[in-house]
């Protein structure tokens, strides 16, 4: 970790976005009291969490990246067991109902599906009625439907006035879910802010994706055009003035006799921001 400085507002969904090995989990573990930072400070309200990590463990709810429980314990027994560690708790019944685990109440953990395990992990994270909930890669490995369900329950947590801190390496998830975002790589925070604000600040333009019978090469001079990249057979033009560039592009194609077979425009996404910040795509 290298000089990470984060401020998380109460009541928001805060996302840590970055590739594997960026230091997201390590950051969470230090806040959760699972790992001691070599230097620096972590405060929660008036509490110094480096000095007294016990406060974090009592008040925070935690779902770890690999949420493993005893395989041969039943769902309700697992929640009960964790509830017995805290002073203030939500009832097991409430949690089972809320996360739709009623049918699986008496099932062994080893017989749960991926989505059910995930729901159990979040239910256990809520067992102490926490003010702050940490979710480490809550949707990793889930199918699209299960992912949507997780998003809904994350939003519900916010609606209840809880603060949610989550990590993800999905751009769409970060963009759709998070109020505040910190982009991380190599143990450093590259930028932070609201997703839209980040995009507008880092990538204010728009993109035109052009497909042509012949790849567009050579010197392209169009008004507002900032950068030309090639993605396979497509040519991607980045522009600050979408309307002018589009008009000029059509004109140019006609003049040069290049038949265009496809044209799409889109505004910048977090993906583009990330590419600009790190020089590489998150999928690598």
């Amino acid at each position: 970790m290298d000089g990470v400085d984060l401020g998380i507002e109460p009541g928001c969904i805060f996302g840590l976005l970055g590739p594997n090995g960026a230091g997201k989990t390590t950051t969470l573990e230090m806040i959760e009291g699972l790992r001691r930072p070599d230097s620096g400070s972590i405060t929660y309200g008036d509490h110094d969490l480096v000095r007294s990590p016990a406060v974090a463990r009592e008040r925070f709810g935690v779902q770890l990246q690999t949420s493993a429980f005893f395989e041969l314990l039943r769902v309700d027994e697992t929640i009960d067991l964790f509830a017995s560690f805290y002073r203030h708790t939500l009832s097991t019944e409430t949690l089972i109902e809320r996360f739709e685990l009623g049918e699986k109440r008496k099932a062994y953990v080893q017989n749960l599906s991926g989505g059910q395990r995930q729901r159990l992990a979040v239910a256990v994270a809520l067992v102490n009625d926490p003010e702050v909930v940490f979710l480490d890669e809550p949707t990793a490995g889930l199918d699209p439907q299960a992912r949507r369900n997780v998003w809904d329950s994350v939003r519900q947590l916010r609606a209840e006035g809880r603060t949610v801190v989550l990590t993800t390496h999905y751009m769409d998830e970060a963009e759709a879910l998070c109020d505040q975002l910190a982009v991380m790589d190599h143990g450093r925070v590259l930028d932070e802010g609201q997703p839209q604000e980040l995009i507008e600040r880092r990538q204010p333009g728009a993109f035109i994706e052009v497909a042509a019978e012949v790849p567009i090469t050579g010197d392209l001079r169009l008004p507002g055009l900032e950068r030309v990249t090639h993605e396979g057979p497509k040519t991607v033009l980045m522009t600050q003035r979408l309307d002018e560039t589009l008009g000029a592009l059509a004109e140019w194609a006609k003049q040069e006799g290049v038949p265009l077979t496809g044209l799409a425009t889109r505004t910048a996404t977090l993906e583009d921001v990330f590419l600009q910040l790190t020089g590489r795509s998150l999928r690598d």
């Binding site: 925070f60 690999t66 493993a68 560690f85």
Partner: peptide, 16 residues
Amino acid sequence: RWKEKGVLRRFLATPL
């Protein structure tokens, strides 16, 4: 096994 699968870490994240 618990170390490997993260069971221990989960317990460590509680007041236990």
